[in-house]
Design a binder for these strands. Structure first.
Length: 464
RNA sequence: GGCGCCAUCGCCAAGUGGUAAGGCAAAGGUCUGCAAAAUCUUUACUCCCCGGUUCAAAUCCGGGUGGCGCCUCCA
Protein backbone atom coordinates (compact mmCIF):
# COMPACT_ATOMS: atom_id res chain seq x y z
CA UNK A 1 0.00 0.00 0.00
CA UNK A 2 0.99 3.61 -0.34
CA UNK A 3 1.25 6.00 2.58
CA UNK A 4 1.92 9.72 2.57
CA UNK A 5 5.16 10.30 4.41
CA UNK A 6 5.51 13.78 5.86
CA UNK A 7 9.28 13.38 5.74
CA UNK A 8 9.37 13.10 1.95
CA UNK A 9 6.13 15.00 1.36
CA UNK A 10 4.94 12.31 -0.96
CA UNK A 11 3.13 9.02 -1.10
CA UNK A 12 5.52 6.12 -0.74
CA UNK A 13 5.07 2.40 -1.11
CA UNK A 14 4.88 1.01 2.40
CA UNK A 15 7.60 -1.53 3.12
CA UNK A 16 8.01 -2.59 6.75
CA UNK A 17 11.42 -3.27 8.23
CA UNK A 18 10.51 -6.83 9.10
CA UNK A 19 8.39 -8.59 6.55
CA UNK A 20 4.82 -9.05 7.79
CA UNK A 21 5.36 -7.05 10.94
CA UNK A 22 4.55 -3.41 11.50
CA UNK A 23 5.71 -1.37 14.45
CA UNK A 24 3.56 1.69 15.05
CA UNK A 25 3.74 4.43 17.60
CA UNK A 26 0.96 6.97 17.90
CA UNK A 27 1.40 10.01 20.12
CA UNK A 28 -1.33 9.65 22.70
CA UNK A 29 -3.19 12.07 24.92
CA UNK A 30 -2.16 14.08 27.91
CA UNK A 31 -4.61 12.76 30.43
CA UNK A 32 -5.79 15.93 32.10
CA UNK A 33 -9.27 16.11 30.56
CA UNK A 34 -11.87 14.21 28.55
CA UNK A 35 -10.62 13.94 25.02
CA UNK A 36 -12.10 16.12 22.31
CA UNK A 37 -13.22 15.18 18.82
CA UNK A 38 -9.89 16.28 17.40
CA UNK A 39 -8.17 13.71 19.59
CA UNK A 40 -10.85 11.28 18.51
CA UNK A 41 -9.95 11.83 14.87
CA UNK A 42 -6.35 10.89 15.57
CA UNK A 43 -7.28 7.78 17.54
CA UNK A 44 -9.84 6.65 14.98
CA UNK A 45 -7.63 7.25 11.95
CA UNK A 46 -4.66 5.34 13.25
CA UNK A 47 -6.85 2.65 14.72
CA UNK A 48 -8.25 2.25 11.23
CA UNK A 49 -4.77 2.07 9.73
CA UNK A 50 -3.90 -0.56 12.29
CA UNK A 51 -7.04 -2.54 11.48
CA UNK A 52 -6.36 -2.28 7.78
CA UNK A 53 -2.76 -3.44 8.10
CA UNK A 54 -4.00 -6.42 10.09
CA UNK A 55 -6.60 -7.13 7.45
CA UNK A 56 -3.78 -7.06 4.89
CA UNK A 57 -2.03 -9.77 6.81
CA UNK A 58 0.51 -7.86 8.83
CA UNK A 59 1.18 -8.46 12.44
CA UNK A 60 0.93 -5.02 13.99
CA UNK A 61 2.57 -3.96 17.20
CA UNK A 62 0.89 -0.75 18.23
CA UNK A 63 2.05 1.50 21.03
CA UNK A 64 0.27 4.63 22.22
CA UNK A 65 1.45 6.53 25.25
CA UNK A 66 -0.31 8.42 27.99
CA UNK A 67 1.43 11.66 28.89
CA UNK A 68 0.82 11.77 32.61
CA UNK A 69 3.35 14.36 33.72
CA UNK A 70 3.72 17.87 32.33
CA UNK A 71 2.64 21.45 33.07
CA UNK A 72 -0.98 20.80 32.16
CA UNK A 73 -1.15 17.80 34.46
CA UNK A 74 0.43 19.71 37.31
CA UNK A 75 -1.81 22.74 36.89
CA UNK A 76 -4.97 20.75 36.56
CA UNK A 77 -4.21 18.55 39.54
CA UNK A 78 -3.57 21.67 41.63
CA UNK A 79 -6.83 23.22 40.50
CA UNK A 80 -8.75 20.10 41.40
CA UNK A 81 -6.87 19.61 44.61
CA UNK A 82 -5.97 16.05 43.76
CA UNK A 83 -2.71 14.29 43.05
CA UNK A 84 -1.35 13.98 39.56
CA UNK A 85 -1.72 10.24 39.82
CA UNK A 86 -5.39 10.58 40.71
CA UNK A 87 -5.93 12.93 37.79
CA UNK A 88 -4.17 10.57 35.40
CA UNK A 89 -6.04 7.52 36.64
CA UNK A 90 -9.36 9.25 36.23
CA UNK A 91 -8.77 10.40 32.66
CA UNK A 92 -7.07 7.21 31.57
CA UNK A 93 -10.23 5.40 32.63
CA UNK A 94 -12.27 7.99 30.72
CA UNK A 95 -10.02 7.52 27.71
CA UNK A 96 -10.76 3.82 27.62
CA UNK A 97 -14.46 4.35 28.02
CA UNK A 98 -14.71 6.70 25.05
CA UNK A 99 -12.15 4.85 22.96
CA UNK A 100 -13.94 1.54 23.47
CA UNK A 101 -17.24 2.99 22.37
CA UNK A 102 -15.61 4.59 19.34
CA UNK A 103 -14.31 1.18 18.36
CA UNK A 104 -10.71 2.23 18.99
CA UNK A 105 -8.88 -0.91 19.99
CA UNK A 106 -6.52 -0.92 22.93
CA UNK A 107 -2.89 -0.56 21.98
CA UNK A 108 -0.59 -3.50 22.61
CA UNK A 109 1.15 -1.26 25.10
CA UNK A 110 -0.09 2.00 26.64
CA UNK A 111 3.08 3.21 28.36
CA UNK A 112 3.01 6.10 30.78
CA UNK A 113 5.77 8.66 31.03
CA UNK A 114 5.93 8.33 34.81
CA UNK A 115 6.55 4.62 34.54
CA UNK A 116 9.43 5.04 32.13
CA UNK A 117 11.63 7.53 33.92
CA UNK A 118 14.55 5.07 33.87
CA UNK A 119 14.73 4.79 30.06
CA UNK A 120 14.18 8.54 29.76
CA UNK A 121 17.12 9.36 32.01
CA UNK A 122 19.23 6.83 30.19
CA UNK A 123 18.46 8.47 26.87
CA UNK A 124 19.27 11.94 28.17
CA UNK A 125 22.56 10.65 29.53
CA UNK A 126 23.43 9.15 26.17
CA UNK A 127 22.70 12.43 24.45
CA UNK A 128 24.86 14.32 26.88
CA UNK A 129 27.74 11.89 26.56
CA UNK A 130 27.60 12.27 22.80
CA UNK A 131 27.70 16.04 23.05
CA UNK A 132 24.12 16.72 21.97
CA UNK A 133 22.92 17.96 25.32
CA UNK A 134 24.10 20.30 28.03
CA UNK A 135 22.88 20.94 31.55
CA UNK A 136 22.43 24.19 33.41
CA UNK A 137 21.24 24.41 37.00
CA UNK A 138 19.56 21.03 36.88
CA UNK A 139 17.91 21.56 33.50
CA UNK A 140 19.14 19.63 30.50
CA UNK A 141 18.74 21.01 27.00
CA UNK A 142 19.11 19.49 23.61
CA UNK A 143 21.70 21.32 21.53
CA UNK A 144 19.99 21.96 18.20
CA UNK A 145 23.10 23.45 16.64
CA UNK A 146 25.19 20.42 17.48
CA UNK A 147 22.74 18.15 15.71
CA UNK A 148 23.15 19.18 12.08
CA UNK A 149 20.00 17.49 10.78
CA UNK A 150 17.77 19.47 13.10
CA UNK A 151 14.59 20.53 11.33
CA UNK A 152 14.58 17.98 8.54
CA UNK A 153 10.97 16.92 8.99
CA UNK A 154 9.45 20.38 8.77
CA UNK A 155 12.29 22.17 6.99
CA UNK A 156 13.14 24.37 9.90
CA UNK A 157 16.58 25.61 10.56
CA UNK A 158 17.84 25.83 14.11
CA UNK A 159 19.66 29.12 13.61
CA UNK A 160 16.79 30.80 11.85
CA UNK A 161 14.09 29.79 14.29
CA UNK A 162 14.94 32.82 16.35
CA UNK A 163 13.50 35.09 13.71
CA UNK A 164 10.10 33.60 14.43
CA UNK A 165 10.48 35.45 17.71
CA UNK A 166 7.94 33.18 19.25
CA UNK A 167 10.41 30.74 20.64
CA UNK A 168 10.66 30.87 24.38
CA UNK A 169 13.66 33.10 25.00
CA UNK A 170 15.79 31.74 27.74
CA UNK A 171 19.16 33.45 28.05
CA UNK A 172 20.73 30.35 29.46
CA UNK A 173 20.09 28.35 26.31
CA UNK A 174 22.81 28.26 23.69
CA UNK A 175 20.29 28.60 20.92
CA UNK A 176 16.65 29.67 21.17
CA UNK A 177 15.50 26.48 19.46
CA UNK A 178 17.12 24.28 22.11
CA UNK A 179 14.49 22.43 24.09
CA UNK A 180 14.32 20.86 27.51
CA UNK A 181 15.07 17.17 27.91
CA UNK A 182 14.93 17.35 31.66
CA UNK A 183 13.51 20.05 33.90
CA UNK A 184 14.80 20.83 37.37
CA UNK A 185 12.25 20.52 40.14
CA UNK A 186 10.21 23.56 41.06
CA UNK A 187 8.57 23.91 44.46
CA UNK A 188 5.43 21.82 44.73
CA UNK A 189 6.14 19.78 41.63
CA UNK A 190 6.59 16.05 41.48
CA UNK A 191 10.14 14.94 40.83
CA UNK A 192 12.43 12.02 40.25
CA UNK A 193 16.07 11.65 41.13
CA UNK A 194 18.49 12.06 38.26
CA UNK A 195 22.18 12.71 37.60
CA UNK A 196 21.27 16.41 37.29
CA UNK A 197 19.38 16.55 40.52
CA UNK A 198 15.71 16.19 41.25
CA UNK A 199 13.42 16.98 38.37
CA UNK A 200 11.10 15.66 35.70
CA UNK A 201 11.28 14.83 32.01
CA UNK A 202 10.61 17.35 29.25
CA UNK A 203 7.69 16.72 26.95
CA UNK A 204 9.35 15.35 23.83
CA UNK A 205 11.75 12.92 25.42
CA UNK A 206 9.11 10.51 26.70
CA UNK A 207 7.95 9.52 23.22
CA UNK A 208 11.47 8.85 22.02
CA UNK A 209 12.29 6.80 25.08
CA UNK A 210 9.07 4.81 25.04
CA UNK A 211 9.02 4.14 21.31
CA UNK A 212 12.53 2.75 21.58
CA UNK A 213 11.76 0.90 24.77
CA UNK A 214 8.74 -0.92 23.40
CA UNK A 215 9.35 -1.07 19.66
CA UNK A 216 13.03 -0.55 18.92
CA UNK A 217 15.42 2.12 17.74
CA UNK A 218 13.89 2.30 14.29
CA UNK A 219 10.17 1.80 13.89
CA UNK A 220 7.96 1.63 10.84
CA UNK A 221 5.29 4.22 11.48
CA UNK A 222 5.16 7.17 13.82
CA UNK A 223 1.96 9.15 13.82
CA UNK A 224 0.13 12.03 15.37
CA UNK A 225 -1.85 15.16 14.68
CA UNK A 226 -0.70 17.74 12.16
CA UNK A 227 0.44 20.18 14.82
CA UNK A 228 2.77 17.66 16.34
CA UNK A 229 5.04 17.93 13.32
CA UNK A 230 6.70 20.91 14.89
CA UNK A 231 8.12 21.02 17.39
CA UNK A 232 7.19 17.67 18.90
CA UNK A 233 8.10 15.24 16.15
CA UNK A 234 10.99 17.34 14.97
CA UNK A 235 12.42 17.19 18.46
CA UNK A 236 11.75 13.50 18.80
CA UNK A 237 13.68 12.88 15.63
CA UNK A 238 16.57 15.02 16.78
CA UNK A 239 16.82 13.31 20.18
CA UNK A 240 16.39 9.83 18.91
CA UNK A 241 18.60 9.97 15.86
CA UNK A 242 21.32 11.89 17.66
CA UNK A 243 21.33 9.18 20.31
CA UNK A 244 21.23 6.11 18.08
CA UNK A 245 22.61 7.32 14.77
CA UNK A 246 19.72 5.47 13.12
CA UNK A 247 16.49 6.66 11.55
CA UNK A 248 13.84 6.91 14.25
CA UNK A 249 10.83 6.11 12.05
CA UNK A 250 10.53 5.25 8.38
CA UNK A 251 7.09 6.75 7.86
CA UNK A 252 5.77 9.88 9.51
CA UNK A 253 2.00 10.13 9.29
CA UNK A 254 -0.12 13.08 10.34
CA UNK A 255 -3.85 13.51 10.47
CA UNK A 256 -5.58 16.79 9.63
CA UNK A 257 -7.60 18.85 12.02
CA UNK A 258 -11.23 19.19 12.78
CA UNK A 259 -12.45 22.73 12.26
CA UNK A 260 -15.46 24.46 13.67
CA UNK A 261 -16.80 27.27 11.50
CA UNK A 262 -13.72 26.79 9.35
CA UNK A 263 -11.43 27.67 12.19
CA UNK A 264 -9.20 25.24 13.93
CA UNK A 265 -10.79 23.77 16.96
CA UNK A 266 -8.54 24.72 19.81
CA UNK A 267 -8.45 25.33 23.47
CA UNK A 268 -7.44 28.93 23.10
CA UNK A 269 -10.35 29.70 20.76
CA UNK A 270 -12.69 27.89 23.11
CA UNK A 271 -14.53 26.24 20.24
CA UNK A 272 -13.83 22.65 21.01
CA UNK A 273 -16.13 19.75 21.70
CA UNK A 274 -15.32 16.71 23.75
CA UNK A 275 -16.56 13.35 22.62
CA UNK A 276 -18.78 13.35 25.67
CA UNK A 277 -20.48 16.51 24.35
CA UNK A 278 -21.27 14.89 21.02
CA UNK A 279 -22.63 11.58 22.20
CA UNK A 280 -25.40 13.25 24.11
CA UNK A 281 -27.00 13.61 20.71
CA UNK A 282 -25.29 11.16 18.39
CA UNK A 283 -24.01 7.65 18.52
CA UNK A 284 -20.33 7.03 18.87
CA UNK A 285 -20.58 5.16 15.61
CA UNK A 286 -21.94 8.24 13.83
CA UNK A 287 -18.90 10.18 15.00
CA UNK A 288 -16.55 7.49 13.78
CA UNK A 289 -18.33 7.25 10.45
CA UNK A 290 -18.20 11.03 10.10
CA UNK A 291 -14.47 11.09 10.69
CA UNK A 292 -13.84 8.31 8.19
CA UNK A 293 -15.96 9.92 5.53
CA UNK A 294 -13.18 12.33 4.58
CA UNK A 295 -9.56 11.60 3.81
CA UNK A 296 -7.49 11.66 6.99
CA UNK A 297 -5.13 14.38 5.86
CA UNK A 298 -7.82 16.88 4.87
CA UNK A 299 -9.20 19.31 7.33
CA UNK A 300 -12.83 18.57 8.13
CA UNK A 301 -15.43 20.95 9.31
CA UNK A 302 -17.66 19.97 12.15
CA UNK A 303 -21.29 20.86 12.65
CA UNK A 304 -24.57 19.44 13.78
CA UNK A 305 -25.94 19.43 10.26
CA UNK A 306 -22.99 17.39 9.05
CA UNK A 307 -23.46 14.79 11.76
CA UNK A 308 -27.14 14.69 10.92
CA UNK A 309 -26.42 13.86 7.31
CA UNK A 310 -23.76 11.38 8.35
CA UNK A 311 -26.33 9.65 10.50
CA UNK A 312 -28.71 9.36 7.55
CA UNK A 313 -25.99 7.77 5.49
CA UNK A 314 -25.13 5.28 8.20
CA UNK A 315 -28.82 4.44 8.57
CA UNK A 316 -28.89 3.59 4.88
CA UNK A 317 -26.12 1.04 5.39
CA UNK A 318 -27.85 -0.50 8.38
CA UNK A 319 -31.16 -0.57 6.54
CA UNK A 320 -29.55 -2.74 3.93
CA UNK A 321 -28.12 -5.06 6.59
CA UNK A 322 -31.56 -5.36 8.16
CA UNK A 323 -33.12 -6.20 4.82
CA UNK A 324 -30.49 -8.84 4.19
CA UNK A 325 -31.02 -10.24 7.62
CA UNK A 326 -34.71 -10.47 6.95
CA UNK A 327 -33.95 -12.65 3.96
CA UNK A 328 -31.62 -14.84 5.99
CA UNK A 329 -34.25 -15.37 8.66
CA UNK A 330 -37.40 -15.66 6.60
CA UNK A 331 -36.50 -16.74 3.10
CA UNK A 332 -37.56 -20.22 2.02
CA UNK A 333 -34.80 -20.43 -0.53
CA UNK A 334 -31.55 -21.59 0.96
CA UNK A 335 -29.05 -21.97 -1.87
CA UNK A 336 -28.01 -19.15 -4.16
CA UNK A 337 -30.02 -18.93 -7.35
CA UNK A 338 -28.69 -18.82 -10.87
CA UNK A 339 -29.99 -15.26 -11.36
CA UNK A 340 -28.06 -14.13 -8.30
CA UNK A 341 -24.73 -14.75 -9.98
CA UNK A 342 -24.32 -11.13 -10.95
CA UNK A 343 -24.88 -9.76 -7.48
CA UNK A 344 -22.57 -12.38 -6.00
CA UNK A 345 -19.92 -11.16 -8.38
CA UNK A 346 -20.62 -7.58 -7.31
CA UNK A 347 -20.24 -8.57 -3.67
CA UNK A 348 -16.87 -10.08 -4.47
CA UNK A 349 -15.72 -7.10 -6.50
CA UNK A 350 -16.65 -4.70 -3.73
CA UNK A 351 -13.80 -6.02 -1.66
CA UNK A 352 -11.33 -5.68 -4.51
CA UNK A 353 -12.31 -2.08 -5.03
CA UNK A 354 -12.24 -1.42 -1.30
CA UNK A 355 -8.69 -2.71 -1.04
CA UNK A 356 -7.60 -0.65 -4.01
CA UNK A 357 -8.97 2.46 -2.34
CA UNK A 358 -7.61 1.75 1.10
CA UNK A 359 -4.23 0.89 -0.38
CA UNK A 360 -4.05 4.43 -1.65
CA UNK A 361 -3.02 6.23 1.50
CA UNK A 362 -5.96 4.91 3.49
CA UNK A 363 -8.69 6.46 1.37
CA UNK A 364 -11.57 5.67 3.68
CA UNK A 365 -13.90 8.03 1.83
CA UNK A 366 -13.61 5.90 -1.27
CA UNK A 367 -13.79 2.74 0.79
CA UNK A 368 -17.10 3.89 2.19
CA UNK A 369 -18.38 4.71 -1.28
CA UNK A 370 -17.75 1.06 -2.16
CA UNK A 371 -20.13 0.09 0.61
CA UNK A 372 -22.80 2.45 -0.68
CA UNK A 373 -22.39 1.16 -4.20
CA UNK A 374 -22.95 -2.35 -2.93
CA UNK A 375 -26.08 -1.21 -1.13
CA UNK A 376 -27.41 0.22 -4.36
CA UNK A 377 -26.73 -2.98 -6.29
CA UNK A 378 -28.28 -5.13 -3.58
CA UNK A 379 -31.40 -2.99 -3.50
CA UNK A 380 -31.70 -3.39 -7.24
CA UNK A 381 -31.07 -7.10 -7.32
CA UNK A 382 -33.94 -8.65 -5.38
CA UNK A 383 -31.96 -11.30 -3.54
CA UNK A 384 -34.10 -14.30 -2.62
CA UNK A 385 -31.75 -16.89 -1.18
CA UNK A 386 -30.39 -17.13 2.33
CA UNK A 387 -26.97 -18.02 1.03
CA UNK A 388 -26.57 -14.94 -1.13
CA UNK A 389 -27.92 -12.70 1.59
CA UNK A 390 -25.45 -14.21 4.03
CA UNK A 391 -22.65 -13.60 1.58
CA UNK A 392 -23.58 -9.94 1.30
CA UNK A 393 -23.98 -9.60 5.04
CA UNK A 394 -20.60 -11.17 5.64
CA UNK A 395 -19.00 -8.76 3.21
CA UNK A 396 -20.48 -5.74 4.97
CA UNK A 397 -19.36 -7.06 8.31
CA UNK A 398 -15.86 -7.78 7.10
CA UNK A 399 -15.24 -4.43 5.44
CA UNK A 400 -17.18 -2.63 8.18
CA UNK A 401 -14.87 -4.23 10.69
CA UNK A 402 -11.82 -2.83 8.91
CA UNK A 403 -13.36 0.62 9.29
CA UNK A 404 -14.54 -0.14 12.81
CA UNK A 405 -18.20 0.34 11.95
CA UNK A 406 -21.33 -1.76 11.35
CA UNK A 407 -20.85 -3.77 14.50
CA UNK A 408 -24.39 -3.44 15.79
CA UNK A 409 -26.22 -6.64 16.45
CA UNK A 410 -28.91 -7.06 13.84
CA UNK A 411 -29.32 -10.82 13.93
CA UNK A 412 -31.89 -10.98 16.62
CA UNK A 413 -34.48 -13.61 17.20
CA UNK A 414 -37.80 -11.85 17.00
CA UNK A 415 -39.54 -12.79 20.27
CA UNK A 416 -42.78 -14.69 19.76
CA UNK A 417 -44.60 -11.99 21.70
CA UNK A 418 -43.53 -9.47 19.05
CA UNK A 419 -44.42 -11.83 16.23
CA UNK A 420 -47.84 -12.18 17.78
CA UNK A 421 -48.45 -8.46 17.96
CA UNK A 422 -47.29 -8.00 14.40
CA UNK A 423 -49.61 -10.72 13.22
CA UNK A 424 -52.46 -9.18 15.14
CA UNK A 425 -51.71 -5.83 13.57
CA UNK A 426 -51.69 -7.36 10.13
CA UNK A 427 -55.05 -8.99 10.78
CA UNK A 428 -56.45 -5.66 11.95
CA UNK A 429 -55.16 -4.04 8.76
CA UNK A 430 -56.77 -6.68 6.65
CA UNK A 431 -60.03 -6.01 8.46
CA UNK A 432 -59.54 -2.30 7.77
CA UNK A 433 -59.40 -1.63 11.49
CA UNK A 434 -56.66 0.96 10.99
CA UNK A 435 -57.07 2.53 14.38
CA UNK A 436 -56.26 -0.79 16.02
CA UNK A 437 -53.45 -1.53 13.61
CA UNK A 438 -51.82 1.86 14.22
CA UNK A 439 -52.05 1.32 17.95
CA UNK A 440 -50.30 -2.00 17.58
CA UNK A 441 -47.67 -0.43 15.37
CA UNK A 442 -47.03 2.13 18.10
CA UNK A 443 -46.85 -0.63 20.66
CA UNK A 444 -44.22 -2.46 18.61
CA UNK A 445 -42.36 0.79 18.31
CA UNK A 446 -42.30 1.19 22.06
CA UNK A 447 -40.93 -2.30 22.39
CA UNK A 448 -38.12 -1.50 19.99
CA UNK A 449 -39.43 -2.89 16.73
CA UNK A 450 -40.55 -1.41 13.45
CA UNK A 451 -43.00 -2.98 11.14
CA UNK A 452 -43.05 -2.23 7.45
CA UNK A 453 -45.58 -3.32 4.90
CA UNK A 454 -44.43 -4.46 1.52
CA UNK A 455 -45.72 -6.44 -1.40
CA UNK A 456 -44.49 -9.66 0.15
CA UNK A 457 -46.21 -8.87 3.43
CA UNK A 458 -45.07 -7.18 6.57
CA UNK A 459 -41.51 -7.12 7.86
CA UNK A 460 -40.45 -6.76 11.47
CA UNK A 461 -37.21 -4.93 12.06
CA UNK A 462 -35.36 -4.23 15.24
CA UNK A 463 -34.88 -0.54 15.92
CA UNK A 464 -31.20 0.30 15.97
C1' G B 1 9.34 36.69 7.88
C1' G B 2 10.06 30.96 7.28
C1' C B 3 7.43 26.27 6.08
C1' G B 4 2.93 24.07 4.23
C1' C B 5 -2.22 22.93 2.80
C1' C B 6 -6.81 23.87 0.29
C1' A B 7 -10.61 25.85 -3.58
C1' U B 8 -15.09 20.03 -7.44
C1' C B 9 -23.41 20.08 -7.62
C1' G B 10 -27.64 23.51 -2.35
C1' C B 11 -24.38 20.85 1.73
C1' C B 12 -20.45 17.02 2.59
C1' A B 13 -16.78 14.57 -0.36
C1' A B 14 -13.57 11.21 -3.90
C1' G B 15 -10.96 11.68 -8.24
C1' U B 16 -3.94 14.12 -9.57
C1' G B 17 -3.22 13.37 -17.66
C1' G B 18 -7.99 10.12 -20.99
C1' U B 19 -13.05 12.88 -20.90
C1' A B 20 -16.78 14.32 -13.32
C1' A B 21 -17.42 8.26 -7.66
C1' G B 22 -20.34 8.23 -3.37
C1' G B 23 -23.45 10.33 0.74
C1' C B 24 -27.05 14.05 2.52
C1' A B 25 -30.80 17.27 0.85
C1' A B 26 -34.40 18.30 -3.15
C1' A B 27 -37.93 16.88 -7.04
C1' G B 28 -40.70 13.00 -9.35
C1' G B 29 -42.36 7.83 -9.24
C1' U B 30 -43.33 2.74 -6.87
C1' C B 31 -45.45 0.59 -2.62
C1' U B 32 -49.23 1.82 1.09
C1' G B 33 -55.46 2.55 4.43
C1' C B 34 -52.09 6.38 5.52
C1' A B 35 -46.87 6.39 5.54
C1' A B 36 -43.66 8.94 9.64
C1' A B 37 -40.95 3.75 6.68
C1' A B 38 -38.71 1.31 2.44
C1' U B 39 -37.18 1.61 -2.56
C1' C B 40 -36.26 3.52 -7.63
C1' U B 41 -35.24 7.58 -11.03
C1' U B 42 -33.45 12.51 -11.87
C1' U B 43 -30.07 16.49 -10.46
C1' A B 44 -22.07 19.48 -12.24
C1' C B 45 -20.90 19.49 -21.01
C1' U B 46 -18.24 21.05 -15.78
C1' C B 47 -14.23 21.23 -11.45
C1' C B 48 -12.23 29.72 -8.17
C1' C B 49 -10.10 33.12 -12.36
C1' C B 50 -6.40 34.07 -16.44
C1' G B 51 -2.62 32.19 -19.42
C1' G B 52 0.60 27.91 -20.98
C1' U B 53 2.15 22.58 -22.02
C1' U B 54 -0.45 18.34 -24.45
C1' C B 55 -3.85 14.68 -29.42
C1' A B 56 -6.08 15.02 -24.46
C1' A B 57 -6.01 18.84 -17.98
C1' A B 58 -10.47 19.24 -12.49
C1' U B 59 -5.78 16.77 -12.73
C1' C B 60 0.88 19.26 -15.05
C1' C B 61 3.39 24.48 -15.31
C1' G B 62 3.18 30.04 -14.53
C1' G B 63 0.36 34.11 -12.61
C1' G B 64 -3.85 35.91 -9.86
C1' U B 65 -7.93 35.76 -6.19
C1' G B 66 -9.97 33.67 -1.83
C1' G B 67 -9.65 30.47 2.63
C1' C B 68 -6.77 27.72 6.30
C1' G B 69 -2.69 25.63 9.18
C1' C B 70 2.35 25.13 11.67
C1' C B 71 6.45 28.15 13.51
C1' U B 72 3.11 29.21 21.02
C1' C B 73 0.08 24.29 25.45
C1' C B 74 -3.07 22.01 21.73
C1' A B 75 -4.59 15.90 17.72
Amino acid sequence: MKLYNTMSRSKEEFVPIKENTVMMYNCGPTVYNYFHIGNARNFIIFDTLRRYLKYRGYQVKFVQNFTDIDDKMINRANEEGITIKELADKFIAEYFEDADKLGVMHADVHPKATENIGPIIKLVKTLQSKGYAYDIDGDVYFDTIAYKDYGKLTKHNAEELESGARVDLDERKKNPADFALWKAKKPGEPFWKSPWGEGRPGWHIECSAMAMQYLGETIDIHSGGMDLQFPHHENEIAQSEAATGKPFANYWLHNGFINVDNRKMSKSLGNFFTVKDIIRKYDYEVLRFFILSAHYRSPINFSDALLESTKSGLDRLYECLLNLNHIVVYSEVSDSLEEEKAIIETIRETEISFVKHMDDDLNTADGISDLFNLVKQINLSDIKSKETAKLALAQFRKLGDVLGILHKEIQVEIPSEIEKIAKERDDARKNKDFKRSDELRDLLNEKGYLVEDSKEGYKIKIKL
